[in-house]
Design a binder for these strands. Structure first.
Lengths: 331, 331
DNA sequence: CTGTTAGCGCCTTCAT
DNA sequence: ATGAAGGCGCTAACAG
């Protein structure tokens, strides 16, 4: 069922049928209505491959995210998908599992699929060969969550947000504040959040405690427990670099007989929906994940349309703080 | 950078270059290596739109899921994406938000994008116009989570799983067992789970309690509270039709001063990762969501390859039960 | 406002 | 084992 068939059926030329779908205003109302009616009756659908081949536009945005098992990325993906759809685009997502090798493979698959642009979250935007490949291929892209002066990025200011959390904890009487994070090497977000922690502690005139670094995906609750075991140097509050980690930490502490927030205060980062549904509700920095996704999609679409967007020109999006129930005021 | 350019560069014909990528065994080793080397140096990528136009295969699977905000679907999507990638396919997901109108729109967008097949979860497989559209369009599809004798479905046997839960609760001394669910109209899964509850109660010779039906997306904790308020008829255990609901229920109960499982036992359904990380860890029926996604993808790919798969021929996948910490043994 | 024409890049008989 | 040729369905000049 091609445009030619519709042309036959209506007695107009294929070009006119094409115009009806692409530049309706150039076609007389009579013809237009005729064509539309016949096309509907015939169940005609324009063939997107042919259109893509001809116009060199696939109307597909590729998406590369670390994982969908962390709701923060799933929410973001939904934002991307929605905004893309509104703009007439489809999306093609792949997860990288935080692995450089898979990142490569994924990008390669996405480029092979002729995507017009990409939204992605990479491990390290500063040393990332795939990004170079993309510019070389001339495919516009936008980084989500990553922060880097050399690329177009959509995200929040993790650093200052965490600094603000430290300030808040200090205001609540906390002095022994520790930070729990996944491997810093695996995420620039983790690094900025840690930096924000260091800044906050310094600003408050406090000594930063050693970073508690866990591998997150694995079950290394030991590390955490060993830190909590030394009751003399135990932190009174722990800032976790994401909500999933925070939830796990709370559970882990509880197993050692420490309840939250009575014995230890906990703050997360991300604001995933479920962390508000549990009890105690997690106190956390809420990132606007869906909005980040939407904005990122918007920026790729703009670039695809030829707009030039300067690296670093996108202001950080605002976070909100969810008070929750996992911070206790001391003294 | 087309196949013609590579042909020029190597001095062979375009046909041979094409063969190198599609039927390498038909090309002499010397030529093959030459072409591959040159293609790599030139950064050549086959153009998928052209291939699709020629072969009538897009190597894209469309995916329609209710939402990604429920991790159960995000996990499933990841499974689909992985398996599809392994099979050389990309995926194009859209969420329906549980709304029939959006379902229509999404399917239409997906068909317009020339997908070769679809994996989808619909509200009601028995009265679903979009499914009819799909068969009419001749596009193979597989339902995930839905259960229906008239379509190819991948999922679990919700009904018997819930019945087993009732049995388990009864074995733990529970008699007053209630069920909490989202709107039955919005989901055939919810309906089967409820049916499983009814069956289980009947089998145990117990009187089923009135279904507690909430709208889930909204904040109608009132309904729940009003049920818990009547201390005389309060259930000793509540089966929730999904984990998110269970988590919220636990929180809700706690606000009324009822702790889980001391005052009330709770069982979920889905086994989303996060429900194991909270404390108390949720007792729940664990669906193999990623595996469901993988299998569904596999079945669409098989159908795309021409295999005929009979409706209802796919056996339900096995669930496991996560013991968790939200069931208390009575008496 | 509408028709004619010429590819977009690839695959695939058919021939050699 | 390789080459030549046609066409998948559509759109964008260019005419008229």
């Amino acid at each position: 069922m091609s445009i030619l068939r519709i042309a036959e059926l209506t007695g107009v030329s294929p070009a006119t049928v094409s115009r009806v779908f692409n530049r309706p205003e150039q076609v007389s109302e009579t013809t237009r209505e005729l064509v539309i009616r016949v096309a509907n009756e015939a169940g005609y659908r324009p063939n997107s491959a042919a259109r893509t081949l001809r116009t060199q536009r696939s109307y597909v945005i590729g998406v590369l995210l670390p994982t969908l098992r962390n709701p923060v990325f799933a929410e973001c993906l939904e934002g991307i998908a929605q905004r893309a759809l509104e703009g007439g685009y489809g999306i093609m997502p792949i997860s990288s599992g935080y692995e450089a090798e898979q990142e490569r493979r994924a990008i390669s698959a996405l480029l092979a699929a002729n995507v017009d642009g990409l939204v992605l979250t990479v491990t390290d935007p500063e040393h990332c060969p795939v990004l170079a490949d993309l510019s070389k291929a001339g495919v516009p892209y936008v980084l989500a969550y990553n922060q880097s002066p050399s690329h177009v990025c959509v995200g929040v200011n993790s650093e200052s947000e965490v600094t603000a959390v430290v300030r808040k904890l200090v205001a609540n009487g906390h002095r022994q504040i520790a930070m729990l994070s996944g491997h810093l090497a695996a995420s620039d977000r983790a690094r900025s959040r840690y930096q924000g922690y260091l800044n906050g502690m310094a600003a408050a005139g406090l000594t930063a405690m050693p970073l508690i670094e866990v591998s997150f995906m694995n079950e290394d609750d030991r590390t955490v427990q060993s830190v909590l075991a030394k009751s003399n140097s135990r932190p009174s509050a722990v800032i976790c670099s994401n909500d999933l980690l925070a939830l796990r930490f709370i559970r882990c502490a509880k197993e050692l007989g420490l309840s939250t927030p009575q014995d230890i205060s906990v703050v997360g980062f991300d604001g995933i929906a479920v962390s508000a549904e549990v009890s105690p509700a997690l106190s956390t920095v809420v990132q606007p994940s869906a909005a980040i996704g939407r904005r990122a999609a918007e920026l790729v679409m703009a670039q695809i349309d030829g707009d030039l967007i300067a690296a670093g020109s996108e202001p950080p999006m605002p976070c909100s703080f969810r008070k929750g129930e996992t911070i206790r005021a001391l003294g």
